[in-house]
């Protein structure tokens, strides 16, 4: 990684994210109910919960893309507006229109827009970083393709590359493993582990329980509130999964889980 990354090495003493008693509602419907959560730095933390649990809303609230009714969110020890450039956000792949007339490189360069501000355009330094990120996700040969020509897994890697060029200290990923191939999954986890080695924090939502069991340091079991939070072996237990997923999950044996319905 570049020297800029080391220069802004994250402070290890303060939490990556600290959420205090936040409530989020769409109209009259409460989707996040009085949630408090403190995420330690330099770890990969999984956010698990059924569909409609409010995982996306929680990520958006942290990144400041969702208004919070009550409570306080601090990121890297500060209000989100002070640290936006140090936070990278990867929305769900299905949220955007992939037939959009953009090349792979165009999309990755969007990760630099935050640093460029209102008036500057991406320059050669930004292009270099973008190409480097595309190398990391093994898509540099496809940089000129229209994004719709890529497979689902490749599209997800483009999104990850876009987050990497931001050189952020906190990465928030919404369902990065939704409908992707196993190659992409291992490429993504390798890169996320590399980010962790740089002292960066990764917080990702998923309902693919197997991938998080193997690759995350800590888990947040979430369903409108925090059901459990801690090391994977403590959260990945029958009772916790039952109260998170309700009757949609059946637990077989001590550590074998079978999700019946999402």
């Amino acid at each position: 990684m570049s020297t800029a990354a080391t220069a802004s090495a994250p402070n290890h003493t303060q939490p990556a994210v600290s959420v205090e008693h936040i409530t989020v509602a769409y109209g009259a419907q409460v989707v996040i109910d009085d949630v408090s959560l403190t995420l330690p730095p330099a770890q990969i933390i999984g956010l698990i919960g059924p569909n409609g649990a409010g995982k996306t809303t929680l990520l958006k609230a942290i990144v400041g893309a969702q208004r919070v009714l009550k409570g306080q969110v601090r990121v890297l020890g500060q209000p989100i507006n002070a640290v936006r450039q140090r936070v990278a956000y990867v929305p769900q792949r299905g949220d955007v229109d992939w037939s959009f007339p953009l090349s792979v490189l165009d999309v990755v360069l969007m990760g630099r827009y935050g640093r460029l501000g209102l008036w500057r355009r991406p320059g050669s330094h930004d292009r270099e970083l973008a190409l480097h990120a595309l190398e990391q996700v093994r898509l540099v040969k496809r940089r000129s393709c229209q994004i719709g020509e890529l497979s689902g897994g490749q599209q997800q890697r483009v999104f990850l590359a876009r987050a990497l060029v931001q050189e952020a200290d906190l990465l928030l990923l919404d369902e990065p493993f939704n409908g992707i191939d196993t190659t992409t999954q291992s490429v993504i986890f390798d890169l996320l582990c590399a980010q962790r080695r740089l002292g960066r924090t990764v917080f990702l939502s998923t309902h693919d329980l197997h991938s998080v069991e193997q690759n995350c340091d800590q888990l947040v079991a979430f369903n409108r509130r925090v059901v459990a939070f801690g090391p994977v072996d403590q959260v990945f237990t029958g009772p916790v999964l039952h109260s998170t997923f309700g009757s949609n999950v059946a637990v077989v044996g001590e550590h074998q889980t079978l999700v019946i319905r999402q």
Binding site: K60, V63, G64, A65, R84, Y89, M110, R162
Partner: peptide
């Protein structure tokens, strides 16, 4: 950016 990915635009402030 806003046309393609409004969520990222919001996240970038």
């Amino acid at each position: 950016l806003v046309a393609f990915d409004p969520a990222l635009a919001l996240a970038q402030g």
